[in-house]
């Protein structure tokens, strides 16, 4: 049986919290809360999510460091030319460029990690969504089998939803 996505849109945060409580009372733990404000995780009683974001900067740092070593050591060895009485592989100088390379790699991969872990970018239609969310309304979205659509809609309406959107997943 095909699943449907239902989005209840609530004008007040407390109404959304009531709806989330009712969903949990009905055994639905996996729901999505859409807000225009970054509430702390768990403010709506939603399940905590896990991620591996912290791995990304480490990978980026390693790659950036390796690239910087290649540039600093590789280029100097490719054309050995002593300048300023400094050694060919002048570690303090190399350190500075390697430091920048490492940080650049870490920052770049953090951005990639954030985008990846946020499951962005999303192309196409933003289903289910309501543009009023960016002006303070709260959306509670849930994927359910077609049979449960009415029950969920009723839960949202009982919690005083301003609107309930329904779309096929």
């Amino acid at each position: 049986m095909a699943n449907k996505s239902i989005l209840g849109v609530f004008q007040e945060v407390d109404e959304a919290v009531t709806a989330a409580d009712s969903l949990k009372d009905n055994g639905i733990e996996d729901f999505e809360v859409l807000t225009s404000t970054p509430y702390p995780e768990g403010a709506f009683g939603e399940k905590p999510s896990h991620h591996r974001l912290y791995v990304f900067p480490f990978i980026g740092a390693c790659l950036g460091f390796s690239a910087a070593i290649l540039i600093t050591a590789g280029t100097q060895m490719a054309y050995p030319l002593v300048t300023g009485g400094k050694p060919l592989l002048a570690l303090p100088s190399m350190f500075i460029i390697c430091y920048e390379g490492t940080m650049l790699g870490a920052i770049l991969f953090t951005i990639i990690g954030v985008v990846f872990e946020s499951r962005l970018p999303r192309t196409g239609k933003l289903a289910p969504y309501d543009t009023r969310i960016t002006e303070g309304y709260v959306g509670i979205g849930v994927d359910v089998p077609e049979d449960d659509v009415e029950k969920i809609s009723n839960i949202f309406k009982e919690a005083n939803a301003a609107d309930v959107h329904l779309e096929a997943t």
Binding site: V13, A43, F44
Partner: peptide, 9 residues
């Protein structure tokens, strides 16, 4: 300590 909706902070 107060609750921000469901979360004690």
């Amino acid at each position: 300590v107060r609750n921000l909706h469901k979360l004690p902070l």
